[in-house]
């Protein structure tokens, strides 16, 4: 319950930055926040109070946290970082031509 609330607060903050902010860098930050919100929710939800899913030599642990959502989240984090890098690259390239990264000013420049 608690984690759902945090997820929704972070997700909506990111969504707000994505929609309402006109600065493109802030939009990418918003996207990052949304991704982080989803990943945090996945990890927090899959936490069932067990141990880290790593066996230790000579020790028997009975209850592990689910390793699959963690592996999937890891994939998601890496993909998110590469999309953020590509977006920032395009923003640099856009800025080189237009001299601005403000969405409102760009609308006027484009068409």
């Amino acid at each position: 319950m608690f984690n759902n609330l945090i997820f929704i607060i972070l997700f909506m903050l990111g969504f707000y930055a994505l929609i309402m902010k006109t600065n493109l860098i802030k939009n990418v930050i918003g996207l990052n926040l949304m991704e982080a919100a989803v990943f945090f929710w996945v990890i927090a939800f899959s936490d069932i109070g067990g141990e880290v899913a790593i066996h230790k030599m000579g020790e028997e642990v009975t209850k592990f946290n689910d390793p699959v959502p963690q592996a999937l989240t890891l994939t998601g984090i890496v993909i998110g970082a590469s999309t953020a890098a590509l977006l920032l690259t395009l923003i640099i390239e856009l800025n080189k031509f237009s001299g601005t990264i403000d969405r409102d000013q760009l609308e006027g420049l484009n068409d």
């Binding site: 982080a36 990943f39 945090f40 990890i43 927090a44 936490d47 067990g50 141990e51 880290v52 790593i54 946290n65 963690q70 592996a71 989240t73 890891l74 984090i77 890496v78 970082a81």
Partner: peptide
């Protein structure tokens, strides 16, 4: 830190170096 609290060491390491 929160990932570590939730016992997700790999994800925590990834978030630290990448994020």
């Amino acid at each position: 830190a929160l990932y570590l609290l939730h016992k997700a060491a790999d994800v925590a390491l990834a978030e630290a170096v990448i994020g």
